[in-house]
Design a binder for these strands. Structure first.
Length: 571
RNA sequence: GCGCCCGUAGCUCAACUGGACAGAGCAUCGGACUUCGGAUCCGAGGGUUGGGGGUUCGAAUCCCUCCGGGCGCGCCA
């Protein structure tokens, strides 16, 4: 179904893996399996091989559950199969050892020279190393945010913006031709209501008695727009019947604000698609006609309905109101067909949990119209709550107590907003702890990670005073001098590409901040031991350690860049 | 009532997508500075992974069921 998974790997595509270690081990296992099979020791050769990093480092660098998985079909105990495989393995110079362990795992330990080579490769190849090119130029579209321009972005929109943007960044970085798209509804009822709200405030500004529209937009920003309109146009709009100037003024002003807020977070879009163009282009009518042809339309109570039953949906859903206006989902069906026709290999929709039902309806309708929707993937996030002083901050639009995204950025800064929004699985509710977010202390994960980077930068400043240059990739450093602890740090650092690969394929950007926190933690622990002073009396050792430090800094910087968080040299 | 998501340490969450003794941070308690930035580190306590069944060599992860929370459930988006 999906491109790949992190664990079970088809060994013919091993060459595509971010991890050279996995490529090597897979090739070795494949060769061993074939040899054992040829010798009649094994009945068959599995097509998928599971590889995983053992939790306990004492178990080596990488392990396979191959023997466990084969036990049933081979009719032998796992340990016996493991021994057969081991008999046919040729280690070579890069793999130090392979041994059977536990219930039937085969554990591998790579040679120090292999890791030294990986460190050099990372330093030499730079971005090409850190960002595995798994996309092959395939076309991806990420549709996100897609908030209608009816008011300022809320905290909830923030999670969408950061999630979508980071998913786009991940795909861009890994070799996908990525389009970031913002879709909004400007044809419907809400826009009309927005225009009416502005007109009412405008007339108020002119001192006239007016009744504010029911369900109108009450926020102060409407007054600001109306005020600006009075400043620029005087009273010339007062007695003409056209709503359009108010609507346009509102949409323009609000969109400008939305873009400004996005820019503060480093979020940008390539394409804005609006409902009105789809309607004018006939796409919405065409979708409706297609559904009607297929008998998927019902008409009653004055409205046009999408029939739920033949589509496997729990209920009918309104497509066209009795007023003749389409509902949100109708142009959305046309929009998804449009996206499919544009030839993307992968279409990613980012939206909140409250839209699940609507999305299901849209996809069902699109499929019923004869389109293959397999390339569409949805990333659905749960809601955001704010906590301050252990109390939930009430966010209600109605009571105007809601916190806007801008206010949140004002309070804690863009880096913290981005990091915190990504620091949860999208399936999980996100509790944004404002007290923690504002703390400039190690318990704040953002500062903890950034501090690791700044600390390394400081080491290089210090090293320069002692006459050392920042090591070039081909620097004369003897990496064999590195201790096991240092090699462990390096292993973690060169594991970043795999994390990026998994985060991209699984659409799970939260893996990046978690990884960064771990790397920063390992570094801080290492750094704090007096025996590990990087700049010391031994010049060769100093060189080796500076080389390692440069590697760590590269990993931290690349990871932070990918999630749009600054990697400061000083804090 | 129905559908989707969630339930893991006192709190907020991870767990490489079915693997080896379930891990972090916060909070609590106790420690470490003539340090390349202490914005850091070390140690301790804390768990029947909501309960119960099942599948499997192996389950926090998959299935069933119950309990609890969130979201949604025809003319908002």
């Amino acid at each position: 179904m999906h491109l790949n998974t992190a664990r079970a790997i088809c060994h013919d595509c091993a060459i595509r893996l971010a991890s050279l270690m996995k490529q090597i081990i897979l090739a070795m296992l494949k060769a061993a399996l074939e040899k054992a099979h040829a010798h009649g020791k094994l009945k068959s050769i599995p097509t998928m091989i599971g590889l995983e990093a053992p939790r306990d480092p004492a178990h080596g660098d990488i392990a396979t559950n191959l023997a466990l998985a084969m036990a049933r079909s081979e009719g032998q105990p796992p340990r016996a199969i493991a021994e057969i495989i081991l008999e046919h393995i040729v280690l070579g110079h890069q793999v130090l050892e392979a041994r059977a362990a536990g219930p039937g795992f085969i554990n591998f330990r790579m040679a120090p020279a292999f890791w030294q080579g990986e460190i050099r490769r990372a330093m030499r190849d730079g971005a090409a190393f850190w960002r595995p090119q798994i996309g092959d130029g395939r076309k991806v579209q990420v549709e996100f945010l897609s908030a209608n321009p009816t008011g300022p972005l809320t905290v909830g929109h923030g999670r969408n913006a950061v999630l979508g943007d980071t998913i786009a960044r991940l795909h861009e970085a890994t070799g996908y031709a990525t389009t970031r798209e913002y879709y909004f509804n400007d044809g419907g009822r809400q826009m009309k209501l927005l225009g009416e709200s502005v007109r009412a405030r405008y007339l108020e500004e002119l001192g006239r008695e007016v009744s504010f529209p029911e369900d109108g937009y009450q926020g102060d920003y409407i007054r600001d727009i109306a005020h600006a309109l009075k400043e620029s146009r005087g009273d010339e709009l007062a007695d003409q019947g056209d709503l359009e100037p108010f609507r346009t003024a509102a949409v323009d002003a609000i969109f400008a604000d939305i873009r400004k807020t996005c820019a503060r977070l480093g979020v940008r879009f390539d394409v804005y698609t609006n409902e009105l163009d789809l309607i004018r282009g006939g796409a919405v009518d065409a979708a409706l006609a297609g559904l009607r042809e297929r008998g998927l339309i019902a008409e009653y109570e004055g409205a046009v309905w999408l029939r739920g039953e033949p589509l496997g949906l729990p209920k009918d859903a309104v497509l066209v109101r009795k007023t003749g206006e389409p509902t949100y989902r109708t142009p959305d069906i046309a929009y998804h067909i449009d996206k499919l026709k544009r030839g993307f290999d992968l279409i990613i929709d980012v939206f909140g949990a409250d839209h699940i039902a609507e999305h299901n309806e849209v996809i069902a309708a699109v499929r019923a119209l004869g389109h293959d929707t397999a390339s569409i993937r949805a990333i659905i996030y749960q809601f955001v709550t704010l906590t301050r002083g252990g109390e939930k901050v009430k966010m209600s639009t109605r009571k105007a107590t809601y916190v806007t995204l801008d206010e949140l950025i004002d309070e804690v800064g863009a880096d913290v907003v981005r990091f915190f929004f990504l620091f949860r699985k999208s399936d999980s509710h996100l509790d944004f702890d404002l007290d923690l977010a504002k703390r400039q202390a190690p318990e704040n994960p953002v500062f903890y990670v950034q501090y690791a980077h700044a600390r390394l930068a400081s080491v290089f400043r210090e090293a320069e005073k002692a006459g050392y240059q920042r090591p070039a990739p081909d620097a004369d450093a003897d990496l064999a001098l590195l201790s096991d602890e240092e090699l462990g740090l390096a292993k973690l650092a060169v594991g970043l590409p795999e994390v990026i690969e998994a985060a991209t394929i699984e659409l799970e950007p939260h893996r990046i901040p978690f990884y960064l926190l771990e790397l920063a933690g390992e570094f801080h622990r290492y750094y704090n031991k007096p025996a590990n002073r990087i700049i010391g009396a031994d010049q060769s050792l100093t060189m080796a350690r500076l080389y390692l430090a440069a590697l760590l800094m590269d990993a931290l910087r690349n990871g932070l860049q990918l999630i749009g968080v600054n990697a400061p040299e000083r804090m």
